[in-house]
Design a binder for these strands. Sequence first.
DNA 1: CTGTTATATGTAACATGTAACACGTAACAT
DNA 2: ATGTTACGTGTTACATGTTACATATAACAG
Lengths: 224, 224
Amino acid sequence: MRIRQPRSLTELVVDRLRKAIVEGQFALGENISEDKLAEAFGVSRTPVRDALMQLQQSGLVVVRPKRGSFVFSPTLADVEELCEYRLMLEMQALRLSTARDHAGLVTAIRGAIAAMDAALASGDQYAYGHADAAFHRAAFDHCGNRLVENAYNTAEGQLAAVRTSLSEEYGRPGDASYPEHLQMAEMIAARDMDALAAVMDEHVWRTMRVARKSLPVPEGARRA
Amino acid sequence: MRIRQPRSLTELVVDRLRKAIVEGQFALGENISEDKLAEAFGVSRTPVRDALMQLQQSGLVVVRPKRGSFVFSPTLADVEELCEYRLMLEMQALRLSTARDHAGLVTAIRGAIAAMDAALASGDQYAYGHADAAFHRAAFDHCGNRLVENAYNTAEGQLAAVRTSLSEEYGRPGDASYPEHLQMAEMIAARDMDALAAVMDEHVWRTMRVARKSLPVPEGARRA
DNA sequence: CTGTTATATGTAACATGTAACACGTAACAT
DNA sequence: ATGTTACGTGTTACATGTTACATATAACAG
């Protein structure tokens, strides 16, 4: 019988801050000083500072020495690199999980598709997003490489934040999304990696095409 | 005319600690407490603590709450994942840099080969290692994706530490290393990615075969 | 009006004190 | 002998005070 191990304040702050950024409760580039966050969360500056450092390493926060801490604010080029990176990670995860746990992968993928069906049927956009995330996480859950998995976790955080920020202007759920996921699911089941690569490429870069029209593009806010 | 911006204590401690770990001045799994490091470096515990957190995120240090901070101590399975990860990153970097800056890549590669020649001629093992690192870094320097580059930096740190730790038992420079680099250089120049993939695979997994014989394998020290 | 310097303010960097926890060991009961 | 408890030690987690830097603004000189 295991007793609940309370998580450290730092971890709690990290989780809460990440959630806040990903969900768009802070604007991209917004100033978030240690002091204010510490007061807002009712903790001292130390765990907040630790959390900001962690989030900086996962790319969600930029700390400019003596000047302040800010929510990250990627340029268009940054988002491009992010998509490229994510595509590499996901294709690798798909290759690995197909080779190592194809059955588990396919089961998880099918579950995600079913959740998408349900979400579409009930028109629940939030649930659809959740299912979408589960679809893509499936490969990483079964790839057997924690480094690849961790790398995706950080990339996903940034992408999700960008997506949230964009969808506040474009409230679109995306019409091509569902059929593409169906296609991908079939190709995964059939182990057809080449065809899958083509669809994944298209799928991942959709984010870019939306961003291209919406991001303050040229320089954005300055980085570290 | 730019004035030199002094680096923060935290950064200095990070650099020095990373160097110490990579160069094997600490044993894998060794206990390195904040207090002792702070005293040794002549700074307060704060920058040391910050540095340890950063190094934990890059995988070189494991902090076990209330129990202590330790140099990482990968199991055989961890090293396997690391090699797999590194192979993915380097192939991607090679693909990207070949597509985007083939000339720059080839120049850098040739420079590294030349440095290897010189090192072999003078029997300077340290210089050879340096040239080897430069060879592999070339692709990342020219790939145009900072995420891929950063990911390699962290992976390289861990690999270098493992290599150092192993070479203390096996003082081998590796006989197959040089001809393989020559092969890779030619294939890169010829943009023959398929052949390159095969040689890279062989090249990267050599580390594993050495590790397999030497690492305390089954469980190693426990991780976080 | 213009450019320079002084000053005030916000911020993270750093130092240090305190508390809580993990764990080994010895005292003790049985 | 054995299991349990109490306690000492080492360690990080967290709080808070202090310092140094970056920046905006105001005062000032020309």
